[in-house]
Structure formats: C-alpha cells, structure tokens
Nucleic acid binder design. Structure first.
Lengths: 222, 222
DNA sequence: AATCCCATTTTGGGATACCAGGATTGTGCC
DNA sequence: GGCACAATCCTGGTATCCCAAAATGGGATT
C-alpha cells in the first residue's frame, strides 16, 4: 500500500475520531514529522481529503474541516428521499443472504459494546442498507452523508437509551425489508432519519457552550 | 489562481469535451510538457480529478475514466428521488427572481445556438433547479450526476428534435415550479429523467460499433 | 502602554533529483 | 522463425530544493 494511502487513512481516522479538532490548523511540516514521510505524499493525502471535505483551505493554510451543525437539517432533507428509495429498492432486489448479513451486523453490537462500536455500526447500517439497493450512486451518496454526520454523532449525545432507540428503529426498518413491505420500510426509514436528527438537535441545544469550546460551529443551529 | 487549479480545470475540460478519449492513458510526463508545469501541480490536479472520478488508476497508471453506459439506468434511478425532492422544495422556497434567472438561461438558448451551448444549458438547468431547493447536498449530488452523464450526452444522440423535446420538458418543469404546483412539477421531473434516459439508450443501441471504437464501455448496456 | 516597522522565520507552491519496479525491446540461442 | 533472457527505458512514488509571500516577533517611537 502506498505511503500516501496510509497517511490518508490515518489522518482521516484522526479527524473523524476528533483526535484533531474541527477547525484546527494543519501544517504540511507538522504532518511531515508526525507521519515520518516527505511532503509529497502528505500533500496528495491532503488534496484527497479535501475532496472528501474532511480538510479545507483557509487562505493558504490547511485546516481540519469545521463542523457546521446548521447542516444537520439539510443533511436529513437530503437523506430522506435517498434512503426511502434505497429501502424500496432493497425490498425488490436484496437476497435473503444479503439481508442476513446486515442482521448479523446489528446483532454483533450488544448492550455492553464499547462506544466506538455503536458509532461505527450506526453509520454502517445505513451504508449497508443503501448497498442492498444495488445502486452504487445511492451507496456513495449515503456514505458521504454519514461521513459528514460522523463527528457530530460523537458528542455525548448518544446516551444509553438513545442508542437503544436507534437500534430498535434500525431493527424495524430491516424487518420491513425482510418482510418485503416497501411502504412500511420507507415510512420507518424517513421517521428514523427525522427522529435521529431531532434527538441530535435537542441534545446539542443543551450544551452550546461546551460545543463552541470544542470547535463546533453553532451558527445556524436553531 | 494557482497553477494546479488551472491545470485541473483545463484537463477537466479536455476530458468532458472528449478531447481526451475515455480510457486513454495519461502519463505525468506527457501532461508535464502539455501544460508546461512540473509534476507537482499536475499530480495534485490528477489526485483531485480522481476524487471527481474523471480520472482513475489502472494499476500504476493514470487513465481517463472510461464511460460505463451501464450506469445510465442507475444514474436515472439516483436522480429521480433527488430531483423530485428538489423541485418540491423549489416550489416552497424559490423566489420569483430565482426562477426568472433560470428562465433566462433557458431563453438564451435558441434554435440556432451551437451544440456546445445546448449541452451546457441542458446540464446546468438541472443543477440550477437543484440550487432552487436551497439544499447544498442536493446541489452537489445532482452536479456530480450531471458530470457523469455529461460525456455520454455528447454522442450524436442529441439531434435537433431531441433537443427541442428536452427543452420543452425543461420549460414544463419550470412552469410548474413557477405556478407553485409541486406534485405536477415532481411528476414532470421524474418523467423527464426517465424519457431522457430512454432517448439516450435508444440512440446508443443503434450505434454500438461506433461507440466501442470511441472508447465507450458498452458492457452492461441492454 | 500602544503601535508601527522591519528583520527573521515559517509556510505552502513549484521544480527537480533519485529510486524501484514493470514494461519493452533487442539479442542471441535453439 | 521462435523463444528465453537480459539490458534498457519509462513510469509513478518519494525526497529535497528553491522561492515568494505571509506570518511572526521584537524593538524603536510615540
């Protein structure tokens, strides 16, 4: 594997895990020493991450992409038509084995699982459902949306009951796909997205001060 | 403007205009002499274009992204939920001035206009409609989809009557938005996407041989 | 104490040097 | 003529240089 891809993946992980704060400045020279590579592969990784909008230019500088919590509504608005379409297509196209695969993934995440596990499964579920649609464009769009959502979901928002609730909703959606009931699956998917967004916004509103301190842009958050 | 962005834009244009054939190999050294810059900015441009999927790795080499005509169905499937959502949101949110702007764009493209003009307006219309939705994620997704579609649309497919037909359909969609009739607008938008896809597929089926010669992947085209 | 100014440092953008690996070509043997 | 093999060339990957511009910092001036 090329050095550039290694650096890309590591940096990506550091950003998504909030190891690097949103808005934080990245200098090529610092990354150079941090990853023990020359600037060439680092620059390639940065350009690539810029394409994923995980890193951005600020004048001549590189910064970790800030999080704009105002995007949360637009993101839900974007996901609803796509994910409802995805579950409908999944009903028509997914094999029993494909569905069982997703089911296993959900089962693997029990109550005692670590926070990171819930976070990952909560993201992957939506991507895997999109994959059941058989449409690669839907998959990529959903994957991108979940990436953008990823960091916001780290906030202490995901309390135990909140996780359980999301897990139940995922189960319901998958159940309707399994039962080949596209209308119900679509309805549940839309409701899940809306409710998740509301849970997130509600929790965030209780902690604006703390958010700002962590580099989150609260502007536009109603 | 940085040299990298210039090279990026020029190369992008050459690819989208089919000046560089789909599947054609690109060597960094050839680009170096072609654009009179060193490999550093060229490399950055390539990495960026790779993110837009206009360029791709083939083993260790760079190639212009081939066109997979089998994607046409998936692309329509992807666009329909997004664009119907977009026109509905446009009905609710777009100002009269915004709508007038799009109308002007359509008007500017008369019968006698050059081929390139029709091509550009046909693409931009959909992006501009998406913009009226006010949702940046929808805009980006549609813009990306239209980019992927862009090269296929250059094929001799767009005969005079075909262009006129598309133009009329665009007009109808915009008319319904203007009349604030979201259901009709959504219905027309979906129909337009389906019909455009069918027109394209129909024309392509008549000329498979010619397509292969031009580097189009006919695999998966029914 | 605040502010202006200039020397110094640091930064990213670009050019170039070097390398390893893969393709290609040429060659000599059968 | 055909095939095995070696020398060669060319490629992208990486490291390093150089440069101009922007940031920095500290001291003189008010």
């Amino acid at each position: 594997m090329s050095q550039m891809l290694q650096i890309h993946d590591q940096l990506r992980e550091m950003i998504l895990s909030l190891d690097l704060g949103p808005g934080e400045r990245l200098t090529e020279r610092w990354l150079e020493s941090r990853f023990e590579g020359s600037r060439t592969p680092i620059r390639a990784a940065l350009v690539r991450l810029e394409g994923e909008e995980l890193v951005r230019r600020d004048g001549r500088n590189w910064i970790v992409a800030p999080i704009d919590l105002g995007e949360l509504e637009a993101l839900a608005e974007f996901r609803i038509p796509l994910e409802t379409t995805a579950v409908r297509l999944a009903c028509a196209r997914a094999s029993a084995a494909d569905i069982a695969g997703v089911e296993e993934m959900l089962d693997a995440c029990q109550s005692g699982a670590p926070r990171e596990e819930w976070h990952r499964v909560g993201t992957d579920f939506h991507v895997e459902i999109a994959r059941l649609s058989g449409n690669p464009f839907i998959v990529k769009a959903i994957a991108g949306a979940m990436t953008r959502l990823s960091r916001a979901r780290w906030l202490e928002v995901w309390t135990e009951p909140s996780r359980e609730q999301a897990w139940r909703e995922h189960r319901r959606i998958l159940g309707f796909i399994k039962a080949n009931d596209p209308d119900s699956a679509a309805r549940e998917a839309a409701a899940h997205i809306t409710e998740t967004r509301d849970r997130l916004l509600h929790s965030l509103n209780e902690d604006r001060r703390g958010l700002r301190a962590r580099g989150f842009a609260v502007i536009g958050l109603r």
